[in-house]
């Protein structure tokens, strides 16, 4: 069985203790999306400001939840701030691909990670996950995958609203 050190990496605990971009943005101009994990009551609110060039100029995260959902959302906010909507979407795909990587092996509840296509490999250089790699250990704890992807699914909703896919 995987140990707790696989799950509670220092970076994760750091983001949990000091979440980045915590707060709200005025809507409008910002777009707001809400995500729930009905299983545990975790709740995440994502605000994004997208400018005319399709760049995410600001991000804020609200809501409450466990260390994994909160740190994942915090890292996500840091990673997408200043990025284009397209790059953010690629990052979402890459992150969710990482979360689903062992689905076959872990069996059972491969929850929360099967509704998006894996990384669109080939056409672009690989997406760098950086600090987000620390969350890789979560896949060894299948019930926590939903926690890790909650913020990302919510971001996807916000992106789709702010910049509908063509």
């Amino acid at each position: 069985m995987p140990g707790l050190e696989d799950l509670y990496r220092e970076v994760i605990l750091d983001h949990y203790r000091s979440p980045r971009n915590r707060g709200e943005l005025a809507t409008p101009p910002a777009t707001r999306a809400e995500g729930f994990n009905p299983l545990c009551g975790d709740e995440i609110v994502v605000y994004i400001d997208v400018d005319d060039q399709g760049v995410i100029t600001d991000v804020a995260i609200g809501g409450q939840g466990c260390s994994i959902s909160q740190s994942s959302a915090s890292m996500m906010s840091a990673a997408v701030k200043g990025q284009s909507v397209d790059d953010a979407r690629r990052l979402v795909s890459a992150f969710k691909a990482m979360m689903s990587i062992h689905e076959g092996e872990i069996g059972g509840d491969g929850s929360g990670s099967n509704d998006d296509a894996p990384t669109e490999a080939g056409d672009k250089e690989p997406v760098r996950l950086g600090d987000l790699e620390a969350l890789r250990g979560v896949v060894k704890f299948p019930v926590r995958i939903k926690c890790a992807t909650l913020g990302w699914n919510t971001l996807t909703q916000a992106l789709d609203e702010a910049a509908p896919r063509v």
Partner: peptide, 25 residues
């Protein structure tokens, strides 16, 4: 400590507890 994290740490010690809203929101 969030209940999810409490339950996770306890699980590592073989202790089974439930975390969540217990179907009584």
């Amino acid at each position: 400590v969030h209940p999810h994290d409490v339950a996770q740490v306890l699980d590592q010690a073989g202790v089974c507890v439930r975390a969540g809203h217990h179907c009584a929101k």
